[in-house]
Design a protein around this nucleic acid. Structure first.
Length: 889
DNA sequence: CTTATCACG
DNA sequence: ACGTACGTGATAAGT
């Protein structure tokens, strides 16, 4: 790591410990370490300290604390600091732990009987100046501004503890029109309420500055008091003594009799392990990763030594050692280009974290044997990328054994965080490594891997490889401890290759149909828009909820049903309620739906058709959904319309290639079957065993009518309850959905649970367990942590309960189809079929098959899906074959 | 970059 | 009394 700041420069950071811990305490909300110790002030102090270290790169640090004993100021003026409240216990209890933490950080501490922290800082800073240091003083107390000079910068905290204002001689003059020394005279004149220093009554900052500009010093003002006028003159003359005493009190002593050597304040030598332990005890895990860069002992081992492999013979050396170890780590970097092209420009390989090699383009093809060697384990990070990158070279990586991103996902599939390599390094190794964002920048301004300097890419790859090797054993143990070995090694890891392959193969698109539908939709949009504008009496942007709101609720004065944070709500539910009120509503609904189809599914998909093969290569994400599901992006192939006839037309664009067919297999009611299995409810299981329509069947049981006499209304009520159940829906929601009274919906739910008692028991148990353990699990031990279930916030807590009820059901269904995918994929290979698995839509798999393989594929798909697991109920799969996705229904 | 809306299981 | 179904991703508007 290069350090831009000259390391030989002596830079001394001095901190007023009491002042900063006080600020921190009042600036931050309460925190504790789980054992009754309040920690917010310590945390705030440490964040501040880290920030100062990062920003000012000190070579020496000292923190000064006040002592309880009275100081010379109390002795000379008994009212000094009178009226000040003593420290509250929540803060007082944090002082000792903070001092202990600073000690383990190797930070020098000073406390001197009879003097305040201020005086220590004043004395040490003067000594520092004499010895040629640049000095930085951090405090929340503006009195310290008197210490500012050309080489001493006083940093005054503002806005809590987040930021500081910098003062040196120059900026003090700019801000106050006074020199730092005159600042003391100012205090003498105006006093200080917080320290109970009197000063001269009636003189504040403004007048004080004015007088000092004229007479330079406090003494100057007092000597010239006869030149003052009126009340001011009187006040000054009556309070001369008070003023002189005030100045004395406000003067920071710069000659405290203490023995110390500045050398003792040298920073950077500390035992990292002890510090880490102390930070862990305080539950400050987020701070741990930041310490490594401070440690002087640590800097050496961050030297990056990556050897370049230049020739086939050099590669041979690597290959033979990889064969000996039977394992190596890999990370590939590609050009941003067509997925079907040969885009790799660098491959990093490593047998252990000390020996990392890089290979460039010319030798890539020579990696085929070792990558396809089943006997050698490949480990890495986001290995799906590596697999896909090698496909254009005719290389299919075999035995991808451990991917840290997938491991971290099953260890803790938390929401809204990605499994960035640096967070993994941070969490397991407490090491800060180069982030992708640091390497490439973020957002629109980000650059490609090809645009970064070799050293920087080396640095990034080094971080990845070291993290992979560093984490693997810890993660393996965690996976074992949490009973997830089957899930990880037999499901998730084999699935990496399956998804990579699906992505690479893609799905065929008929572009003519895309264009034809596009035109049809455009015409419909145009004519509907015209009608809407005519009815509205003006042209406006129908796509803008804001403009639409003005038209509907102001111009046409329709009743406001619902509001959003920013204005009127105009969503489908609201429009449905307004449908009868104005003929414009139906048109808007129509317009909305067609615009959605056109922009998202026609225009959106057209852009993503690959120019080489005319196919769509959607990306399947394995580490996003908290429940264990797979997600799909660019485009999302899992939300292609199906519910409305018009939307379903979109499915005509997804076709089988020439001479091929699509075989579509979907599970019938997996989630309800999972529920029947997990709860063990005999009646629910029986309902499935009968093979009848499950919603009709439950309707007949819940409403106590004969199977044949179930009306469509009763069936749909039962269906709503069935689904509501999976999500932990409330009676209120059910009433709203079915448009029935709250009383009725309560009755339905009661009947339901009375009829299927074990389901109720099961649901209650899940919630209870989650409240105790903090997580919910699936049949295959996949975990979802739900901390909010213990929240004191009613809304969060209830949301947590619903998530807990849903996770085992949605998650087990996800486990099941993942197992089926792996088995289907392997079976296709074993039977040497050329057909490919190309899509997964949560409970549905699609294979593109050659016509002469159709029958075998149908059998295989049905068998593997239905036998993926053995539950208390059978799994049932429906099969459909067609030339397009539209036809497979 | 966030918000509202709407597509799917 | 609270607010009211879980899980995703894409687009356009507007701050």
């Amino acid at each position: 790591m290069t350090n831009k700041i000259d390391n030989n420069e002596k830079r001394l950071l001095l901190i007023d410990g009491n002042s900063i811990i006080n600020r921190a305490f009042f600036a931050l909300p309460p925190m504790d370490n789980g054992e009754g110790l309040h920690t917010n002030a310590i945390y705030g102090f440490m964040t501040m300290l880290f920030k100062m270290i990062e920003n000012y790169n000190p070579s020496h640090i000292s923190v000064a604390f006040d002592m309880k004993a009275p100081t010379f100021r109390h002795e000379s003026y008994t009212d000094y600091k009178a009226g000040r409240k003593s420290m509250v216990s929540e803060l007082a209890m944090q002082l000792k732990p903070l001092k202990k933490l600073l000690d383990s950080f190797g930070i020098y501490r000073q406390e001197i009987q009879g003097y305040e922290a201020d005086d220590i800082l004043g004395t040490v800073s003067l000594e520092g100046e004499k010895q040629g240091y640049k000095v930085f003083i951090v405090t929340g107390d503006r009195d310290a501004i008197q210490l500012a000079s050309d080489v001493t910068t006083v940093l005054i905290t503002k806005k809590g503890i987040g930021e500081v204002e910098e003062y040196n001689t120059q900026s003090v003059i700019e801000r106050y029109n006074l020199t730092p020394t005159q600042f003391i005279d100012l205090k003498g004149l105006m006093g200080d309420k917080s320290d109970n220093i009197p000063g001269i009554p009636g003189i504040g900052e403004k007048t004080g500055i004015k007088l000092l500009t004229e007479y330079k010093t406090l003494e100057g003002v007092l000597e010239n008091s006869d030149k003052l006028k009126g009340a001011q003159k009187k006040k000054v003359e009556e309070n001369k003594e008070a003023a002189i005493m005030s100045k004395e009190l406000a003067t920071i002593i710069r000659s405290v009799p203490i023995t110390y050597k500045l050398d003792d304040m040298k920073f950077g030598d500390f035992d990292e392990q002890v510090l880490i332990k102390n930070l862990q005890d305080l539950k400050f895990t987020s701070l741990i990763s930041r310490i490594t860069s401070f440690s002087s002992t640590n800097k050496d081992d961050q030297i990056i030594d990556i050897k370049k492999i230049n020739s086939k013979s050099e590669l041979e050396t690597f290959v033979s050692s990889a064969k000996n170890y039977k394992k190596f780590a890999i990370k590939v970097f590609t050009r941003k280009d067509n997925i079907l092209n040969k885009n790799i420009f660098k491959v990093y390989l490593a047998i252990n974290s000390e020996n990392i090699y890089v290979i460039e383009e010319d030798l890539i093809e020579d990696l085929k044997n070792i990558l396809e060697d089943e006997e050698i384990e490949k480990i890495g990070y986001e290995m799906k990328e590596d697999y896909v990158a090698f496909r254009p070279y005719g290389i299919k990586i075999k035995n991808m054994a451990f991917d840290v991103s997938i491991a971290e996902y099953i260890i803790d599939s938390k929401t809204s965080t990605s499994y960035d390599i640096d967070s993994i390094s941070n969490k397991y190794l407490y090491k800060k490594i180069k982030t992708k964002e640091e390497l490439l920048g973020k957002g629109a301004k980000s650059i490609a891997f090809t645009d970064v300097k070799d050293e920087d890419l080396d640095d990034y790859a080094n971080g990845i490889i070291k993290t992979v090797f560093g984490c693997i054993d810890i993660m393996k143990k965690k996976i074992k401890d949490d009973d997830m070995e089957m899930l990880y090694y037999d499901v998730e890891m084999p699935l990496v290759e399956v998804l990579a392959d699906m992505e690479y193969v893609g799905i065929c698109v008929d572009e003519e149909i895309v264009d034809r539908l596009g035109k049809e939709f455009d015409e419909s949009i145009k004519s509907t828009a015209e009608k809407i504008h005519k009815l509205a009496g003006e042209e406006f942007n129908i796509n803008s909820p804001k403009q639409l709101g003005v038209i509907l609720f102001e111009k046409l004065e329709l009743p406001v049903i619902k509001k959003t944070k920013t204005g009127y709500s105009t969503n489908a539910e609201v429009l449905e309620k307004l449908r009868e009120k104005h003929e414009i509503i139906a048109l808007i609904t129509e317009y909305r739906s067609v615009v959605k189809l056109k922009s998202t599914y026609i225009d959106g998909i057209k852009q993503l058709i690959n120019k080489n093969d005319g196919r769509i290569h959607s990306s399947f994400q394995q580490t996003i959904a908290t429940t264990g599901r797979i997600s799909s992006t660019d485009p999302n192939m899992q939300n292609i319309p199906v519910k409305t006839e018009l939307g379903r037309q979109i499915r005509k664009v997804f076709v089988a290639d020439r001479g091929m067919k699509l075989v579509d297999a979907d599970y019938s009611q997996v989630e309800l079957r999972v529920l029947a299995h997990m709860s063990g409810d005999e009646d629910m299981i029986e309902a499935f065993e009968s093979g009848e329509d499950i919603h009709r069947k439950t309707a007949s049981q819940v409403f106590n009518v004969e199977f044949d006499k179930v009306t469509p209304e009763l069936r749909s009520a039962a269906k709503a309850v069935n689904f509501g159940l999976i999500y932990g829906k409330s009676d209120f929601g059910l009433a709203k959905d079915l448009n029935i009274s709250l009383k009725k919906s309560k009755e339905y739910i009661e009947n339901y649970f009375a009829r299927f008692p074990k389901i109720k028991v099961f649901m209650d148990k899940i919630v209870e367990d989650a409240q105790i353990s903090g997580y919910a699990t699936t049949i295959f031990k996949r975990r979802r942590y739900i901390p909010e279930i213990l929240s004191k916030n009613f809304i969060d807590k209830n949301r947590g309960k619903r998530a807990a009820m849903n996770a085992p059901i949605q998650g087990s269904a996800a486990d099941i189809i993942k197992i089926a995918m792996v088995n289907v994929f392997n079976r296709l290979k074993e039977e040497e079929l050329k057909s490919n698995l190309i899509l997964q839509v949560h409970d549905e798999l699609i294979i593109e098959t050659y016509e002469d393989e159709i029958d075998r594929v149908k059998v295989l798909l049905k068998e593997e899906m239905e036998n993926a697991v053995n539950l208390k109920v059978n799994l049932d799969v429906d099969l459909n074959v067609g030339d397009s996705w539209f036809e497979t229904k």
